[in-house]
Each structure stands twice: as C-alpha cells, then as structure tokens.
Design a protein around this nucleic acid. Structure first.
Lengths: 231, 231
DNA sequence: TGAAAGTCAAGAGCACTGCTCTCGTTTGTT
DNA sequence: AACAAACGAGAGCAGTGCTCTTGACTTTCA
C-alpha cells in the first residue's frame, strides 16, 4: 500500500533536515553541527526536530551512514569506468575516485575516517555501508588473482595462525580463493589508501609533500605493482 | 636569574590545569573537554583559567603538543631498547611502542591523528613535536640503507619529477643519501603504521581482525621485509 | 618607603547548546 | 463521531565558551 499523507511528509521532512544538516556539516564541521541551528534553517523549532531524530547523535549517525554510502558509490563509479580486465587501471581509478570524493567532502570524510565521535559508538546500521568501498577494492584483487596476476607476492613468509584465520574469514566474504598472503597485502593496500588520504586531508604531510596528486598516484601505483597488477 | 614567586606559581598552575585537562580528556574525550569543568576540578572559577589559556582551543593545542611529545618519546624509547644494527628488530620495537602508546592513550592519539578539530588549525608549535616519531622511523631506514640493506627495493619504477623533488627535500632533513625509491617506501611505511593503528582504534577492523597484536606485527614485519631489513 | 603598574581570582552576564516537558492542534483509525 | 497517535510550538533546565568589571594582591620603580 502507499504511504499516508503524514508518512509522506515525514520522510520528506527527514530528508530536508538531513540536507540542511549536511550543508551545516560541510560548512562548520561536525562538532559545530547544532540541532537548533539546523532546526532554524528548516523553519522549525528545535524541539520539533526531536520528533524525527531522537538526539543529536542520531542525526550524526544518519550523516555517517549517508557518507559511507556516498563514498562507496564514488569508488564504485570510479572502478566501473574502466575495462574489467585492466586491474591496474581499475585500482588507480577507484583509489583516485576515493581521494577525489574525500577532497570534495572533507568533513564527511572526517566523519567516517577520523576520530570517532566521543561517547558515541557506531550502531550496526553503519557496518554494511562501511563495507562498500573496501569490498570494491577487494573485488579488483579477487578478479586479478583469479586471472593469475598476483604471482609476484611473496608467499614464503610465515603467517601466524590467528592472522591466517582472520584473513581466511575475510576472504570468505567475497574472494573465497584469495591466497592468505595476497589477502594480507590487500588489507595493507586498503589501509594505505585511507592512510594517505587522511594524511593529506588532516595536514600531516604539510611542508612534506607539495604535489599531492602525483604523490598519491605514485604510491597507489607502487602498491598495485607490488601486487603484480602491472602491464 | 630565577623565577619570581608569581612566575613560579604561574607555571605550576599551568601544569596543574594541563594535568586535570589531560585526565578529563582521557575520561570524556576531546569534544567533551570543558574549560569550566576543568576549572571546577582545579578549584578555580572558569574565568580565572582564561588568564592561563586564552581560549579552549589553546588548552587543546597544549594537549596536542604534549601528546605529540609523549608519542614521540614512546617511539624513541621503543627504538632505543634494541641493538642499533638490528634494523628489523628496531622497526618492530618502535612500531610496537607506537601502537602500545596509542592503545594506552586513545583519546590523545585521536587528538593528533584523528580528524582535526573543526575551525582550528594547528599552530606552528605542533610541527616540531609532530616530527619526532616519523623522524625516528626515518633514522632506522637511514641506518639500514647506509649499511646496504635496502637493495631489494625496486628502483626501476618511474618517479614523477615533482614527487622526486618532494622526497629529495624530505631526505635532506635527516637521511641525506637515501634513495628516492626507498624514501617513498619509508613514507608508505609511516602511513601504514598510523593507518593500521587508526583502523584498530577507530573500529574499522571490527569483526574483521580478532587478534590485533598478531595482525599488527605481521603487517609491520611484512613492511620491513619488503624494505630488505630481514635476517 | 610609597605610589604606580601589572597581575590575579571571582562573579555576573551574554548568547548559545542538547534535551525534556507540557500544551493545544492536526491527522489517521476504529 | 470518538479516540489515540503524531505533531509543532514554547517554556524551561543545566550546561557551555567567553567577556567584562570589580576589588585585592604583587611587583616594580622613583
């Protein structure tokens, strides 16, 4: 059945609140996101907003979920613009898309990859959206591995039992027959992507790197080459 | 000459305020750090604290500087416990010390490696303390490289001109004759250290990695082996 | 030694916040 | 038509960062 008039205006209002909140977030940062200020912009009194978001943290959680989804979609689109069999190009496009999204939406990026909001723990709503982006990068790795392109990864290094089991479990989600050593490198690669973007956005490479574009691409290419996706 | 009575009580009071603030920070998180609450704990009225810290951000900046110094010292001590010529062991000890400090002081770690405080930009006071830890890791690389232990790093990959210049400039600070390719890998390694710790602390590996101890050591060892510090 | 200058703690006050509660009104259901 | 749920508005509470003024205390210097 269709929604009642009241339900329709409710989802619409929730959307409007989120839109205004997103604007405030981008302009003033997460800690300055004021429920009262958002309410003023929407044209409501603050207590009315509480009918739609039980607390400020709930509004923030909605922002986080949306940010994860938007980030994941950006990476997905980046990956999708390239021929499936060109693993290096897919990796470069997907990671460049991740960085571009982060630079366009720094506050939302900080929301999901910066320090967690104090006194707030991510509800389960965020775990699925959070997995979108890394899953795409894993898919590239799985495709490349299936095509036999990960032979240059050293597999003679000992992998502790517990690490092996963790990596196997992770591989079971999408890339069932990915070698454990390759899986470990994929996780390192994912860490490197977010670490590099965070360093750039949070200013940790200030006065160290001037040409972030070239530096990021250089590092991402190095990772892909280490994984044997070159050529 | 010595300090006057007034100056002495002043530095003492600044220290006490910082100590209480550090406790509040550890207990309630950075965004809940209230100048008024700190003042109450110190036994002053809030306006009195403003004589010592012109604003809340200044108090936070002091916390950031202290955190950088403490973090850097922890890494330094970790590195210092190992024979200078054992590069792999030094790397493992230094990075383990970094992770241990972060796990012991998560809020202070988040302060320096999490999202920057909105509307706040790090003053120049923080750049020197911020460099302590990465400089130590660079020193390990420089020592290893001087001993000819970085031959396994591929140097046949093209390095863009701007990246080459950035890396050369960085090398000029401590490790003058470090190869550009090795320098790039060192920066990747540093990114990996902070990225891995942040992922763990900020919960991005929740339900992915169970045995963080083993995982972190495994990844750090892999990085060192890639750099040719094995054996 | 004594006055001027500087420093200090305290308190009141402003504008803001998250959040709760109550009060009529509107809407959907029975 | 009657009732319950949902709703917007307003008042109010406790807390925040920060400013300003006031009166007391030190330090400095003539």
């Amino acid at each position: 059945m269709s929604l009642t008039a009241r339900e329709r205006v409710r989802v619409e209002l929730i959307g409007e609140i989120k839109t205004v909140a997103r604007r405030h977030l981008a302009e003033h940062g997460s800690s300055a996101l004021s429920l009262r200020a958002v309410a003023r912009d929407v044209g409501m009194v603050s207590s009315a907003v509480y009918r739609y978001f039980p607390s400020r943290d709930d509004l923030l959680t909605a922002m986080i979920v949306d940010a994860y989804v938007a980030f994941g979609e950006a990476v997905m689109i980046g990956d999708a613009t390239v021929r499936r069999s060109h693993y290096l190009d897919r990796w470069m496009a997907a990671t460049a898309a991740a960085r571009a999204w982060a630079r366009t939406n720094p506050q939302e990026y900080a929301l999901i990859f910066g320090s967690p909001i104090p006194g707030y723990q991510a509800p389960t709503d965020t775990v699925d959206p959070a997995a979108i982006a890394p899953m795409i990068l894993l898919a590239i790795a799985a495709d490349a591995s299936a095509a036999g392109r990960t032979l240059s990864v050293p597999t003679d290094r000992p992998v502790p039992r517990s690490v092996r089991s963790d990596l196997r479990r992770l591989a079971g989600v999408t890339a069932r027959d990915l070698d454990v050593a390759v899986m470990g490198r994929c996780l390192m690669a994912w860490t490197q992507v977010i670490g590099s973007i965070s360093f750039e956005l949070f200013g940790h490479l200030h006065n160290v790197i001037d040409d972030y574009d070239a530096y990021f691409a250089f590092q991402m290419r190095g990772i892909a080459l280490d994984l044997g996706w070159g050529g």
